[in-house]
Design a protein around this nucleic acid. Structure first.
Length: 475
RNA sequence: GGCCCGUUCGUCUAUCGGUUAGGACAUCUGGUUUUCAACCAGGAAAGAGGGGUUCAACUCCCCUACGGGCUGCCA
């Protein structure tokens, strides 16, 4: 690996702005980001917008927003591929002048007819232009496309860090179009020129481009440019082993944001999907940057598993700093179009975070558990909680309340007081917990009653107990 | 049709010619418990099929099956 130290790493993510940031694209971006960031290199972002009909500024915004949410910061400005069209065309003309490309006058319908016929006969549909070696003086004054002169003998070896050495016979390569008949460059040319001009050293992209790499290499070779290190990564599938699509549920990065998955958990899950570092499952960004390499990327497509995502997200939430979580939740609320937290709610959330974050896998999950601290009196019990507030439990609560007003408000004292109360009443604590939950939170599923009382404070807790004891409306 | 790639528990994966094929998520059983979660203990669960090579194959080679990709004046 001594070569790696000689040249700084430059990676890039190059999405087409035709829709939201697909989760598979997000992972490709993540791999590029990790690889560059772990090596002190640069991570560039280029928008492949040469298809004018399908590219939209909204899509570019969605991609930027998705990357921002995932914390994938890029170096330098966002590059528009379309802006480089003149440069791309200039390269094609350079190739033309050097005799490494040629003008092809075959009309499209003719080519199409050839392909249809070849297919019908079960023969190769590779088109061989009759204009490849026609001298300039014999060329007509007619519309033409510029095609590269691809090698016709020998083999091209794609030295891929993930797939290994992939050998393609050159007779399988076509003289692909570089410039359309209107003079505009095609994608295949644009990527190569841009990657070269941007100094990209490692091309990490989906393996749907593996075959394209051989074709792109003919351009690199014709221009005498260094071929980058290739790493073609397998695509992500849905749970049924089919290409991930809408029917599998969410495919856009921002949908995961709206569902309340923490970005750190997403990064961890996506990194581990199709890449491994021994048995490590849960790791921080710092560890991921340190460990990530091309060798650890698997060759087979991985399936997306929500359960594992949730498990990892739960662990990340539990390990995130309380204040940072409140910030993330605030952003989540905003992104998902929900009402913002009041200052009082924010503070309450922060105070209660220690006992909330241990038990939540997503932000909505956490918020659900936090209802006790986000709600104001009067606490209205939901259906399940109401069942714990029958007349008997109300009686018990009203007996308990004066007792608690005399107790010192710390965990040990509260536990002692409640246990003593239960013993005196001859009941188990379990009998008391349900009504307490209903009174304090209005829910049947909550954090520990001690934590709730501690977070709420003595005054508020007693007020809620009092209210529950006297309120008979629900029964 | 042609060319290219892939295939280890349900899922993500470890292994890199010699292992009782390991871990994680999910699942099942038991325990703990104050609900949910968490936690503890334990269980079930895998090399697509067929040929080689080798003393020995999940690991190397070939074939088949299945899945995927490319085969555009899309990207």
């Amino acid at each position: 690996m001594p070569a790696e130290t000689s040249k700084p790493v430059v990676t890039r993510f190059a999405p087409s702005p035709t829709g939201y940031l697909h989760i598979g694209g997000a992972r490709t971006a993540l791999f590029n980001w990790l690889y560059a960031r772990g090596r002190g290199g640069k991570f560039l972002l280029r928008i492949e917008d040469t298809d004018r009909a399908r590219s939209t500024p909204e899509a570019t915004q969605a991609i930027l927003q998705g990357m921002a949410w995932l914390g994938l910061d890029h170096d330098g400005d966002v590059i528009s591929q379309f802006d480089g069209a003149d440069r791309h065309a200039a390269v094609a003309h350079e190739l033309l002048a050097a005799g490494k490309a040629y003008k092809c006058y075959s009309p499209q319908d003719e080519i199409q007819a050839f392909r249809d016929a070849a297919k019908a006969e079960g023969k190769s549909t590779l088109f061989h232009s009759p204009w490849r070696d026609v001298a300039a003086k014999d060329q007509p004054d007619a519309p033409f496309v510029v095609r590269i002169k691809a090698p016709q003998e020998g083999t091209t070896i794609i030295k891929d860090e993930v797939q290994g050495d992939v050998t393609i016979r050159n007779d399988q390569l076509d003289d692909m179009v570089l410039l359309r008949s209107d003079g505009t460059p095609v994608y295949m040319l644009a990527v190569v020129v841009d990657d070269h001009d941007m100094g990209v050293t490692h091309v990490i992209r989906g393996d749907d481009h593996l075959n394209n790499a051989a074709r792109q290499m003919t351009i690199y070779n014709a221009m005498g440019w260094d071929v980058p290190v290739w790493a073609h990564i397998p695509l992500i599938f849905g749970g049924d082993g089919k290409k991930l699509s809408k029917r599998h549920g969410a495919t856009g990065a921002e949908e995961y944001q709206v569902m309340g998955y923490p970005a750190a958990g997403m990064r961890n899950y996506l990194t581990r999907l199709g890449w491994s570092h021994g048995d490590d499952e849960f790791f921080t960004d710092a560890q991921a940057k340190e460990w990530f390499d091309l060798k650890g990327i698997g060759k087979s497509p991985a399936r997306f598993d929500f359960k594992k995502l949730e498990s990892l997200c739960g662990q990340h939430i539990a390990q995130t700093d309380d204040a940072a979580l409140v910030k993330e939740i605030t952003a989540f609320l905003d992104a998902s179009g929900q009402p913002a937290l009041s200052d009082a709610q924010s503070n309450g959330l922060l105070n209660g975070m220690y006992c909330l974050k241990e038990r939540a896998k997503t932000f909505p999950d956490l918020l659900e558990k936090a209802i006790f601290v986000l709600s104001k009196r009067p606490i209205v019990p939901d259906e399940k909680a109401a069942k714990n507030l029958d007349s008997v439990s109300r009686g018990i609560l009203s007996e308990l309340t004066p007792l608690l007003s005399a107790v010192s408000w710390d965990r040990d004292s509260l536990e002692a007081a409640l246990n003593a109360f239960c013993e005196a009443k001859g009941t188990k604590f379990g009998k008391l917990a349900g009504p307490l939950r209903a009174a304090l939170a209005g829910r049947a599923v909550t954090p520990s009653v001690f934590d709730m009382m501690l977070v709420l404070g003595q005054e508020e807790s007693l007020a809620r107990l009092t209210q529950a004891a006297v309120d008979t409306a629900a029964t």
